[in-house]
């Protein structure tokens, strides 16, 4: 699969999901597919009028249709219940790993990245409906922790 097309400036808000999709393209195509679908769906609500955005959205749609055919035997791509379970499991594993590192005072860029990515993947789960109370709390905590540890590292402080 080719690289994800560059998104126009008006769609900057979806860049994070596309980056996670690109990083998972070969590692976990299910995560990559749903991050792109979530990005596309969000983009439709942000800018579908500018020429740049329209061209980008059509390319993304083409790409997702090709992916869906390519992975027609993968239930976590063709079936939304299986997809939700796969993504929830993946995001939770990442979140629990980051939390365990945090509690063991192992602070590093990889812990920031894991908290951040899990927070973004909890966002992607909204594609399948409203999040449970627990997932909502995890999402809030993951995003806050990622920002907090990131700032501490940047300022040379030790996270508490």
């Amino acid at each position: 699969m080719t690289d994800i097309p560059t998104c126009p400036p008006t769609l900057k808000a979806i860049q994070h999901y596309l980056k996670i999709a690109q990083e998972h393209a070969s590692r976990d195509p299910v995560v990559a597919y749903w991050c792109q679908l979530h990005a596309l769906q969000s983009a439709l609500g942000i800018d579908r009028k500018s020429d740049e955005s329209k061209a980008f959205l059509v390319k993304m749609m083409d790409r997702l249709e090709v992916m869906k055919k390519e992975f027609k035997d993968n239930e976590a791509i063709t079936n939304e219940v299986a997809a939700q379970a796969h993504l929830e499991n993946y995001a939770l594993k990442l979140f629990i790993w980051a939390d365990s590192q945090d509690r063991a005072s192992n602070f590093g860029k990889n812990v920031v990245k894991a908290f951040y990515t899990s927070g973004m993947l909890f966002d992607v789960l909204t594609t399948f409906g409203e999040l449970s109370e627990e997932i909502q709390q995890n999402r809030k905590y993951a995003k806050w922790k990622a920002a907090y540890i990131h700032n501490c590292l940047k300022n040379g402080e030790t996270p508490v």
Partner: peptide, 27 residues
């Protein structure tokens, strides 16, 4: 009439993208 034409065109394109996304999720 130019603006009406443009607005109709935009709305048709929007519908097409929405329909494609909906079909993609139902496939």
């Amino acid at each position: 009439t130019g603006s009406i034409g443009t607005s109709t065109q935009v709305s048709q394109e929007q519908d097409e993208l929405t329909q494609r996304l909906s079909r993609l999720r139902q496939m």
